[in-house]
Nucleic acid binder design. Sequence first.
DNA 1: GTAGGGTTAG
Length: 642
Amino acid sequence: MYTCESISHLLATCKTLASFKQIQAYAYKSNIHSDPFVAGKFILHCAVAISDAFHHALRLFLDVPAPDVFMCNAIIRGLSESETPQNSISMYSKLRREVGFRPDSFTFAFLLKGVANYRCLRDGVQLHCQAVKHGLDGHLFVGTTTVSMYGECMCAGYARKVFDEMFGPNVVAWNALVTACFRSNDLMALEAVFGEMPFKNVTSCNVMLAGYMKAGETESATDLFSEMDVKDAVSWSSMVGGFAHNGCFTEAFGVFRGSVRSGIGANEVSLTGVLSACAQAGAFEFGRIVHGLVEKSGLNWIITVNNALIDTYARCGNVGMSRLVFDSMPDKSSVVSWTSMITGLAMHGCGKEALQLFHQMESHGVKPDGVTFVSILYACSHGGFIEQGSTYFSNMIEIYGVEPSVEHYGCMVDLYGRSGQLEKAFDFVTKMPFSPTDIIWRILLGACSIHGNVKLAEHVKGSLALVDPDNSGDGVLLSNIYATAGKWRDAAGVRRSMENQQIKKDPGWSTIEIDKVLYSFVAGDKRDKITEKAHEKLDEIMLRVRVEGGYMPEVASVLHDIQEEEKEDAVTRHSEKLALAFGLARSREGRTIRIMKNLRVCRDCHSVMKLVSKLYRVQIVLRDRSRFHTFDSGFCSCRDYW
DNA sequence: GTAGGGTTAG
């Protein structure tokens, strides 16, 4: 015979509908199935602890002639934790209407949490009113959940008002308020509340840390972190992720090592953070070490970690490793995994494979989102698939219901502009439902540069000057367009006006990783032994590409109105060439040379790299601002289309 | 018998 207690005990480990039905059968045999306690437990378990079993929970619920509050709450909770939490509210109204359901504090806790999940302020306010109507808004748990809900809806102000009405807020309530300010991106309010708190525990400090990091205030975060006498795994991982988020990868590596040394160890958040730092720095070897740690720590089943690995390998120039990680993932339900893989392929010039993967994703039943379409359109524009690109763009809206953002429009402008259809590209800009941003104009300017359209370039530069007058890259690009067209005086004019306005050119830099050490180079500088060595080797390389490869310098890439010979020297000394020379001098034979550049690679460097890959029989992988170039046997993976 | 607070990926 089974009792209520033994049924509860059985349910604790029951995870499938089949085993659940068995337990139900025991309850029938023992004739305790209609006991309200047992029936309630059954409904709750089925509604929240077994996946895809809500329909069964609902059937059980409907079989009960007079369901009690507990049962109603179980049904509402099941819906509020589902994919469609909105349904919990309609269920609530239905129960109120049809069975005279009287909600309690639990009801509102579940409902409000559901709203927090889909962040609908209107529904949130309505529930808040209902809670007031039932006299439950003063309940500590309900109040705390309301504060969290308003935070998720980005309304720190409302959260604060609710909090101020609360009677005797405890630590949890305070922390909910702090988090609400964090979620609303309200750093001022966050700092104020943090300062006001009568008790600070680690949790609230962690929120403050994350808040500083989100706002880019890495120094304040560092100060707070060093003042904290108790630091837990969340504190450490927030620092790692925060530094990575702000592009401070050296610091991210440092804190990550610190977390391991302090005995806290790596967790999935610090691992994704440090991987993101690797991705930005292009630190392939270090990324591999972190991958080893992932395997060793047994965290290799976590989806976010795998997604970070896919992205890191792709950004470090090894999309093959990304593919291995992707293929090894047993759970491919996350759209992020697919999108990362698609982006990786597209970055590496494998546009066709990227589109194929998109179709595989669809047959897997994973729904694409806005980011997926950015990478799809990117793949099309970089692969020169103009027709397909326009089709995807219209399908995105009509079939998938994804609202196009400025980024999507940017991809389309790039798609047409890059392929030489400058008028169509310009037309797209004027017909956009947003006013064009600096980025949009810059894409068009880039297209003018590729296709040598001076007239449109001048017009675009004029619009750019209105939106973002201080950007050095734009002046450089326009000046290069003039120089390519042989209009040296105009090129010099742009440069002079940049000097007058004190606009400084972003210095180009490149990094190369050899034996796990990262070396960086800036154009033309001779500072130390390393740079000296690079210059020496570069002289030898340039001579060889000239004599054996028939290389002719392409001087249009420098903007100076200087003598031809000097121009040649300035191109010769670009940072990516220095990194390449150093790599050739120091890498072991047969090794792939991996270089990262902060700006886009210039035409001259591009042709030198092709020649070097042939003459020196090396593979060179170069990551520039927008994509990867893999040079092998005299050819580049971008097929000179970038 | 049910419930509230912290960092994370494209």
